[in-house]
């Protein structure tokens, strides 16, 4: 089959334009991190990455509490993942394996959570957290995050379990193995890729989260990276290259893992909306 050369040329051009739009901001983040402030604000930014400035960037980064922020971020993200997967797998299992009254209503409630803006419940949560003493507390933040990532995890895991024939569990049920045991030892190994995808989604939901963290955490010591980075906005004491370097360090894990499990993430996010 011959293809029109003009058509493939214009397609090539289109791809170049699209890739430039998509990739440029990330490239520019790296390029900015490797400039020095006098270049950025006076002589003009050097567009290519000046790798020679790497040692200077590292010493600038050392003055930003990036390690502490990343540690807080990691804790929040890990807590969000553990809670979301535990509760989400139990819920997903029930929705996949049992037919019971109220099943449709639960599906609808889960779908609802995907429509509610975080900014909407941040105010009442703030009031509730004051009552429960969860304000200014990393655990409180984790609990708030899980509300949004648990339903997504449940959707993904339910979808994966739907694809497993019931016969697989049957012998275990006859042997009177408790259901939770079946879930952990029979089902989990079979849906490992989806578990990994749900874990990545929950982890980076917690990793990226900003609104709850900015509202519920007052102590600088507790700040995750998202809040720390946002505090640089409109503030000029920290060199811009260090800000961009920190943003880059913060982005790399998210980009790497999203690219790794992209297809599963898409399947999960869309199935929630379809099967509601």
């Amino acid at each position: 089959m011959k293809r029109n050369p003009l058509l493939s040329l214009s397609r090539g051009l289109l791809i170049v334009i699209l890739a430039t739009f998509a990739g440029f901001p990330v490239y520019w983040m790296a390029s900015t991190a490797l400039n020095v402030n006098s270049q950025l604000f006076n002589t003009g930014q050097v567009p290519w990455p000046q790798l020679g400035n790497l040692p200077e960037l590292l010493s600038e980064l050392a003055q930003v509490p990036i390690l502490r922020w990343l540690m807080n971020t990691g804790l929040i993200a890990a807590g969000t993942t553990v809670f979301s997967l535990t509760l989400g797998s139990v819920l997903g299992y029930a929705l996949s394996r049992f037919r019971f009254q109220g099943r449709g209503a639960i599906g609808f409630l889960l779908f609802m959570t995907q429509v509610i803006p975080e900014a909407l419940i941040v105010v009442p949560l703030y009031a509730i957290f004051i009552t429960l003493g969860l304000l200014n507390n990393l655990w409180g933040l984790v609990l708030a995050n899980v509300g949004f990532s648990l339903p997504v995890a449940a959707f993904i895991l339910k979808g994966a379990m739907d694809a497993i024939p019931y016969e697989v569990e049957e012998s275990a049920i006859i042997d009177n193995c408790p259901r939770l045991g079946i879930l952990s030892f029979v089902i989990f190994p079979l849906i490992a890729p989806s578990l990994a995808a749900a874990a990545v989604i929950s982890f980076f939901a917690g990793w990226n989260e900003f609104l709850f963290a900015a509202t519920f955490l007052m102590d600088r010591e507790l700040w995750p990276t998202s809040v720390g980075l946002a505090s640089f906005i409109g503030q000029y004491e920290t060199p811009l290259s260090a800000v961009m370097g920190a943003a880059l360090v913060f982005s790399i894990p998210a980009v790497a893992f999203f690219l790794l499990v992209q297809r599963k993430i898409v399947a999960g996010l869309t199935s929630g909306a379809v099967k509601g």
Binding site: A19, A22, P25, V26, L40, F210, A247, V255, F258
Partner: peptide, 30 residues
């Protein structure tokens, strides 16, 4: 190319905001 095209989706919101703020910067932005 496929990986590059996914960058905007994968970069965390706050990091994305920081770089776009700099791109849009009045006197020195690209």
């Amino acid at each position: 190319v496929r990986a590059v095209l996914l960058f905007g989706w994968a970069v965390p919101n706050v990091a994305a905001t920081l770089i776009w703020l700099w791109i849009y910067n009045g006197p020195s932005g690209v």
